[in-house]
Design a protein around this nucleic acid. Structure first.
Length: 301
DNA sequence: AACACACTCAACCGCTCGGTG
DNA sequence: ACACCGAGCGGTTGAGTGTGT
């Protein structure tokens, strides 16, 4: 072997760029069955033309069942500001205080919103007072600590007596722990314990978390079967596209596929959970490789 | 309507860290 | 003690989208 670090994968043989729904499905299906013991070997085993790092990132930042979606709440933003003040750019550490939020997401929010806001706040205060920089930083720190402390106290009090976080794991809204739980988790700094209750691989799981999740998400649906079915109509799986939605089809497979797509849409945030009418055009907005023909089709879910 | 610019965020890259032999 | 390897982290990029002119 020559000098320098060996690349993590053969760059010429891996696909880059945005993930397609077919790739997401493959990754979900594989991890559902096998867990993710070794990210480096996972892409090959799962039949993905992706770098292991890319798979890991996709799973952690997007596909993981406990990823929380949607805008950050003011409480979360305050927490980030406070933690950034004390921890700096240690995004993963900050993320550990915000269950369901990823380091990448927090980093983006900081860089796009909070940094400016804090900067503006600093500027305004500086203009309106004769406070020195040193005094300002000290005062500001106290302010953030006050906010965080009150949050923690409130959370601990309001979470007392509520059900165990683990009881949420079997539901579709696995990621949506109640605000009280989230805050309590922050307050107790016990996120590691909570996460450790989710088996990370099939070998170590007494209770099959994924089976439980699967059952609640869609009782009759095995994602690997859907993947097989989904893939069987496409000879080149690296170019998998969204299935064609035709109203002529009335097979069970079509129904199964609809169910899965509905689930995936919701999980990936491609549609609203309450929507009952689904158009190809909606999907087209979020999916590479959806043909123009598909845009005219409508399906009821 | 068309264009330019600003903004967002998913994804990539390169580095460090920690475990293992 | 050392080298190797995989996982994880933080900085950066760039495609897509929104907004103003």
């Amino acid at each position: 072997m020559g000098k320098g670090r060996a690349p993590c994968c053969d760059k010429s043989k891996v696909k880059k760029g945005p993930w397609t729904p077919a790739e997401d499905l493959k990754l979900i299906s594989f991890i559902q069955k096998n867990g993710h013991g070794n990210w480096r070997s996972l892409p090959k085993q799962a039949g993905l033309l992706r770098c292991g790092k890319s798979c890991r990132l996709r799973w952690i930042n997007y596909l993981r069942p406990d990823v929380k979606r949607g805008n950050f709440t003011p409480e979360e933003e305050n927490t980030i500001i406070k933690l950034h003040d004390s921890l700096g750019n240690r995004w993963s550490k900050i993320a550990s205080y915000l269950p369901g939020r990823t380091d990448n997401e927090i980093k983006n929010v900081w860089n796009t919103h909070l940094k400016k806001r804090v900067g503006t706040l600093n500027k305004d205060i500086k203009i309106n007072t004769t406070t020195t920089q040193e005094e300002f930083e000290t005062n500001n720190k106290d302010q953030y600590i006050d906010v965080a402390t009150s949050l923690i106290e409130e959370a601990t009090a309001s979470a007392a007596g509520s059900c165990s976080p683990t009881s949420s794991y079997g539901s579709l809204n696995l990621c949506n722990l109640s605000t009280d739980h989230v805050r309590a988790a922050e307050a107790r700094d016990n996120q590691d314990q909570v996460i450790n209750e989710i088996p990370s691989d099939s070998a170590g799981a007494d209770i099959d978390f994924w089976d439980m999740l699967d059952t609640d998400l869609s009782p009759d649906l095995d994602y690997s079967k859907v993947l097989d079915m989904y893939s069987s109509n496409h000879s080149d799986q690296s170019q998998l596209q969204a299935p064609h939605y035709t109203n002529e089809s009335s097979s069970d497979q079509y129904d199964e596929c609809q169910k899965w797509l509905r689930y995936l849409e919701i999980e990936l945030g491609l549609t609203q959970t309450s929507t009952t009418t689904y158009t190809g055009a909606n999907y087209y907005e979020c999916c590479d490789g959806f043909t123009s023909q598909d845009q005219n089709n409508t399906m009821q879910v």
